[in-house]
Design a protein around this nucleic acid. Structure first.
Length: 586
RNA sequence: GUGCCCGUAGCUCAAUUGGAUAGAGCACCAGCCUUCUAAGCUGGGGGUUACAGGUUCGAUCCCUGUCGGGCACGCCA
């Protein structure tokens, strides 16, 4: 049988029904043909509800319409039979030959099986993680990283031209606080003990950075540190420093005392944290095409430019000395400040500039992966884009709910500022990269995630990661014991011998894979891949236990081997999309 | 208080976005290694989809209300 290059049975059947429906109704009035995979084998392989949808416009009984459609359906070598069922479903059965022949395409496509053209080469950007470089990544960032990286892979597989981007918040107050924190620790190393503000960064990593500065430059950056507390309340040493005002005063003092050296320390801690973050993510299998600096938007005047554009279009007004953007015109709850009383731009201002910049770089679609705590932020960013005459629908925000760690059935404590949190690095060291990546995307992203550390760690049948990987290792093991051992022999195998329910079920499962990838891309839902892989592994394990592959009869042996090689490819490709290894031995 | 998200088996979650008898894993019970890896397989029990209405051929999904949980409501980022 000769089939087109990348056969898609689902769309083929949809075409057949569309042709049949054109005998009953004007093509313009025809709704989209929904072709769904069935849950039960008795319902065939694919099912369509078009007859029910046409019941209203045609004013006829759905079952009657279904019968008429079936009579009008063109002949196809892929269609075994078609029947009416239930309230008017049209159930279609694929021929065994169609399923069996499909195996050849899988083996031929190999690593690229599962890819498609849904994205039509559109330029799409995925921005994710984008954590402030003020400390180590924690397990909350890990979920965004795993989700973003997997989604980017899936979009690329679905035919998009993907750019992965990390927005570096290297401007602004948090970086100043980190700089001050590091300098204070550095001063301590030089015997100068000033009160350490409660709202500065407490983590030990700050002390490590201070040590690095100390080792490289000795006491060079001590300067007149005793002036640091100037202008603060008299009795700070007794009560401690804990207000934003006091902290900002210390930062201002530090800038004055250090002069040009302030920039050195600022830059040093930034580079250090960013490098740490990059390594951490790399070891997590997460890489970026672009690290986009927020500071660069200020340096080249782009923030001022964007704000000016808002002003020119009449969306800005002055009140209480600040410049406000009329975001309420675009559905926001209240207007927002873009330039403060003291002349500084707000974070929102640079974010407007950043998103405008994204569109000006020519991305046809932009996806932001944000923590769910930022959901109130969506309206104002989209509003600003609209005000700047951009299409806000080109920006899509995927919200990620928090991940809560459980150890021994109890919540692991998490509190960012106090430095008491589980880092991504610790998580990786504890459960391993593969388990962490898989667990993070096992849930729909807009759902809370309960991350069971004990389960992720367990090297047993309880662990879904090993379950999928084990299926892959088993195939590899069989192939290793296959004496002829040449997979190319399987290219033109006679798959007609694959007729058991298990074999036909597995064939259908393989056929589904490209559709699953496309659905995952369409819905920003990597968890669909995880669930699919689990199901495929399950069917394989069952097959493995019931059927011997290395049988004496060569044609049957080759047929079965070709099937498990195809399964191996799908497992590899699927795990690869999720950033999980497919080990040959376990 | 206002806005957004959520509520599905004992636990953690799915459900092709309005489709057929709501499905998996874990946990629990009973079996399967002289055979390609038992990190596996086979069988079993378990549900008024928080609750009350509404929309229609058909609702876990859409609308209204109630109860319960999470998040957000700065000239912070």
């Amino acid at each position: 049988m000769n089939l087109p290059d990348q056969p898609n049975f689902k769309t083929h059947f949809a075409d057949l029904l569309r042709q049949a429906a054109s005998t009953l109704i004007e093509p313009d009035a025809l709704p989209r043909i929904e072709m769904a995979r069935t849950k039960q084998a008795s319902h065939g392989d694919y099912s369509c509800n078009i007859a029910m949808q046409l019941a209203k416009p045609l004013r006829k009984n759905p079952r009657e319409i279904a019968s008429l459609l079936i009579e009008a359906i063109p002949d196809s070598p892929l269609l075994e039979k078609v029947e009416v069922a239930g309230a008017g479903f049209i159930n279609l059965f694929l021929t065994h030959a169609a399923k069996q022949t499909f195996l050849q395409y899988v083996l031929k496509k190999g690593k690229t099986f599962g890819t498609g053209h849904y994205g039509q080469g559109k330029k799409i950007q995925v921005e994710f993680v984008s954590a402030n470089p003020t400390g180590p990544l924690h397990v909350g960032h890990g979920r965004g990283a795993a989700l973003g990286a997997s989604l980017a892979n899936i979009l690329a597989a679905a035919g998009f031209c993907v750019t992965r981007e990390y927005y570096v918040n290297d401007a602004g107050r948090q970086m100043d606080i980190l700089t001050l924190s590091a300098w204070l620790r550095y001063l301590e190393l030089n015997g100068i003990h000033l009160p350490f503000p409660e709202n500065a960064y407490q983590g030990d990593y700050v002390k490590v950075m201070a040590q690095l500065i100390q080792q490289a430059h000795a006491e060079r950056y001590v300067h007149q540190a005793d002036l640091l507390l100037d202008g603060l309340d008299e009795n700070v040493t007794d009560e401690g420093i804990n207000t934003d005002l006091q902290l900002d005063r210390m930062i201002a003092n530090a800038k004055q005392i250090l002069g040009e050296d302030y920039a050195y320390i600022h830059n040093f801690v930034l580079t250090e944290q960013l490098g740490d973050c990059r390594n951490d993510l790399m070891e997590f299998g997460v890489t970026f095409d672009t690290w986009f600096s927020e500071q660069s938007l200020f340096d080249n005047g782009f923030v001022a430019h964007a704000v000016k554009m808002l002003e020119e279009r009449g969306f800005l007004y002055q009140q209480d000395g600040a410049a406000w953007f009329r975001s309420t015109k675009f559905g926001d709850e209240k207007d927002r400040v873009v330039q403060r009383e003291n002349g500084q731009f707000t974070y929102f201002a640079s974010d407007i500039a950043y998103h405008l910049n994204k569109f000006e770089r020519g991305f046809e679609q932009v996806i932001n992966i944000w923590g769910a705590d930022h959901h109130g932020y969506i309206a104002r960013v989209k509003g600003a884009l609209q005000a700047l005459e951009q299409d806000p629908n080109k920006l899509e925000i995927a919200l990620v709910q928090f991940a809560v760690l459980y150890r021994d059935g109890k919540k692991a404590p998490m509190s960012t500022r106090s430095g008491e949190f589980v880092t991504l690095r610790e998580l990786r060291e504890e459960v391993g990269k593969d388990a962490a990546r898989f667990f993070y995307v096992m849930r729909k992203s807009d759902q809370h995630l309960d991350f069971d550390l004990d389960l992720a760690k367990s090297e047993s049948n309880e662990n879904p990661v090993y379950y999928v990987q084990y299926a892959h290792a088993r195939v590899c093991s069989v192939l290793a014991q296959w004496e002829e051992g040449d997979i190319s022999m399987l290219a033109d195998v006679n798959a007609e011998l694959l007729t058991s329910p298990a074999e036909l079920g597995l064939l259908q499962k393989i056929i589904d894979f490209p559709d699953i990838v496309e659905a995952a891309a369409k819905e920003f839902a990597p968890h669909l891949i995880a669930f699919y892989l689990r199901e495929l592994a399950s069917e394989f394990h069952s097959y493995y236990n019931s059927t011997r592959f290395l049988v004496p009869e060569e044609s049957l042996q080759h047929a079965r081997l070709s099937l498990i090689v195809a399964i191996q490819k799908v497992l590899q490709n699927g795990l690869n999309l999720l950033g999980v290894n497919a080990p040959e031995k376990m």
